[in-house]
Design a protein around this nucleic acid. Structure first.
Lengths: 212, 212
DNA sequence: AATAAATACGACCGGTCGTGCTTTTTGTCG
DNA sequence: CGACAAAAAGCACGACCGGTCGTATTTATT
């Protein structure tokens, strides 16, 4: 069957629910998220949600997957449209800070919030989050590795360490921007990476001032 | 009256409860923390807790204060016993990573967990957390400033930026150590700061290899 | 037109939550 | 010893939690 109006409607509802769930989870947590609250915000009934996910945990896992999709769409995809190397690394970081600064999610970052929430709570949700985090780290290290292979970063560079440092600048950005001065925070997050890459990159033109 | 066994007992109970609350909050969150759960873990009754704090929010605020005291005792105080400058900065960071590596708190870090939990939840608890975070940032910047004034860091240094970078390395450490490989994480956190300080400090002897 | 499937709903269950009110235990001091 | 106050416990409450059930509505198949 090519198109089924029933499952189409269901899919539309499902993604709408999950988008709301991702946003709500950054406010009250993925565990603190209650079905009644979510149903209220969407104008549907609590039992309507149960028709799609048979348990709260199933909904939580689906929410994590949706957040991953959003992240890839919003942060990863734009960076992949930039040439490999330090410019792509820089674009990825900038897209991330832009995402935080645009206040797309009320709580800043779905993954930062939920990973701290679940870091001492064993179970399927934690495992799914850890897996997503691992893939993100691998991706970041791959981008650094590519810049090394292109000769845009020194050959002897500690690749995982630089990846760690880049991610740290990002994590700190979302944490501080919600509790302290946001503008100073974003400036530090951006300037921190720029300084770091410029110090390492032999070609200063790649990270020139007014560059797209 | 100089000593009253009744209030002494009360004080003992109070700090015992707050210590447990700090630890438990890193597992289930400061909001997810339930009085019944806390009472169970301590072998007291739920209403016994209510005698000391008239509301859950009062207990949460007291828990934040207790966590601050623990942090100052465990991380700040040891660093203050080291000479000012880059060595003190380094000692502070090391004490912090040691604290995470020793797994003192099941969830790693009280402040990281709760600040992400409350970053989109206005109210007194959030305000208290933000205030503590602000004081921590000020303290960190003061230590960097001291190192500059001592000539151990370059005069033109962006002080708040370096403070931001140091804190970022720490935050990332507790986040990654609970979800990914802990040993690699601690290594990156330590090496990251060491590289950074050595690159900036004109006197290499201050951060020599096997130095106490 | 009739049947089957997917979607959504309102009512309800047992359990836990935070929070008051009352009582009992525990230590102090005239 | 008995009066007294602090600490702790017992108990009951309304609210909300995740989850179940029966049912109505929409859509596709026959």
């Amino acid at each position: 069957m090519i198109s089924d109006g029933r499952v189409a409607r269901g899919d539309r509802t499902r993604t709408a629910v999950l988008d709301a769930a991702v946003a709500l989870a950054t406010e009250v947590g993925l565990d603190g998220l209650s079905l009644a609250q979510l149903a209220d915000r969407l104008g549907v009934s609590k039992s309507g949600l149960f028709a799609h996910w048979r348990s709260k945990e199933a909904l939580q896992l689906a929410t994590v997957d949706r957040a991953v999709a959003q992240w890839e769409e919003r942060i990863v995809a734009p960076a992949l449209r930039v040439p490999r190397g330090v410019r792509r690394l820089h674009a990825l970081h900038e897209a991330r800070i832009d995402f935080y600064a645009a206040r797309v999610l009320p709580g800043g970052c779905f993954f930062a919030n939920t990973e701290f929430e679940y870091n001492a709570r064993p179970g399927p949700v934690r495992d799914r989050l850890a897996e997503a985090f691992g893939r993100w780290t691998t991706f970041l290290e791959r981008l650094v590795r590519e810049a090394v292979d292109l000769g845009e970063l020194p050959a002897g560079l500690d690749v995982p360490l630089l990846a760690y440092e880049i991610d740290a600048l990002g994590i700190s950005a979302v944490m501080r921007s919600r509790m302290l001065d946001p503008d100073a925070t974003y400036r530090h997050a951006r300037q921190g990476l720029l300084n770091r890459l410029r110090a390492l990159c032999p070609d200063p033109a790649l990270l020139a001032e007014g560059q797209p």
